[in-house]
Amino acid sequence: MAQFLNASVGGISLGLIWGVLAVGVYLTYRILDFADLTVDSSLATGGVVTAVLIANGCTPILALLASCLAGSCAGLITALLNTKLKIPAILAGILTMSALYSINLKILGNRANVSFFGKPTINGYWADLFNLSLIDDKNVLSIITCVIVCSAVVGFLYWFFGTEFGCSVRATGFNSTMAKAQGINTDLTKIVCLMISNGLAGLAGGLLAQHNQSGDVNMGTGTIVIGLASVILAETVIRDRFSFWLKLALVVLGSVAYRLIFTFAVQMGMHTNDLKLVATAIIVIALTVPLIKKKIAHKKLKGGLNNVKN
């Protein structure tokens, strides 16, 4: 039992890190209605930028900001490919993702990974403050870091999408024909939204790198699946009437839930080879929940009508 709790702390810390990425995916996938596959690589870009910077003596916070910036540059490229060169969304994302792999390797100095054990990370601040062990209490420290980062991210987005420009981004996602007719520069809104979303992916990559104290060129594999799964899990409980910040918070929790399911599965002795199958099963189940709800509601209605007849 204690094992489960211990492992859960690890699952929660990773879940919160990926939660930042999940929010980014929510922005493009749901709000902008743009299937963006760049995140697989922009997360890795964030991670390797942080790794290289910290290994060379940069402060952790500055490294995180740089990762965020690097991620948004990736988003900029995809957006330009789509808006200016008219390349379809999915293809634009894939192209940027592929190109970034080589760029990530270059950033790492043509190696597969760079580690920076012993160098200061953002967790170090809390370790000193609360007198905790950097390594043994790593997960608790990461949770503190991520709660702060996630709150800042949700707060920022809540403000941003309430502004004039933010509303024009939402309009672009809902109905770009109408948006253009209302004088909205839909190219610009797409670019900004993709930059923010991939900036979040880069930030998540930076947090992940600081958690693992290394940046690996393959750390981004399967990111889009993780992001989408988290969003889909969250949407089983999200209702239209919820306020925007609540929806974003639930997306973060969706990511935590997803990670906990994995942790649970591994604790139960599931083989790592089967983890991808578990992931797909979770997503399919989550996607059928609204369908099942409808069927139950329909049966209830039928039952009610039958009662009335009788």
Binding site: F161, G162, G183, I184
Partner: peptide, 30 residues
């Protein structure tokens, strides 16, 4: 369906139309 954004509410749609032709900055959307 083309002239309005279905996922946003009436006042948000009107706010969007109110800003047609103006620069959209970081002021409040409505």
């Amino acid at each position: 369906l083309d002239g309005t954004a279905g996922g946003m509410n009436i006042e948000e749609n009107l706010a969007l139309a109110f800003r047609r032709g103006k620069k959209r900055g970081l002021g409040w959307g409505i």
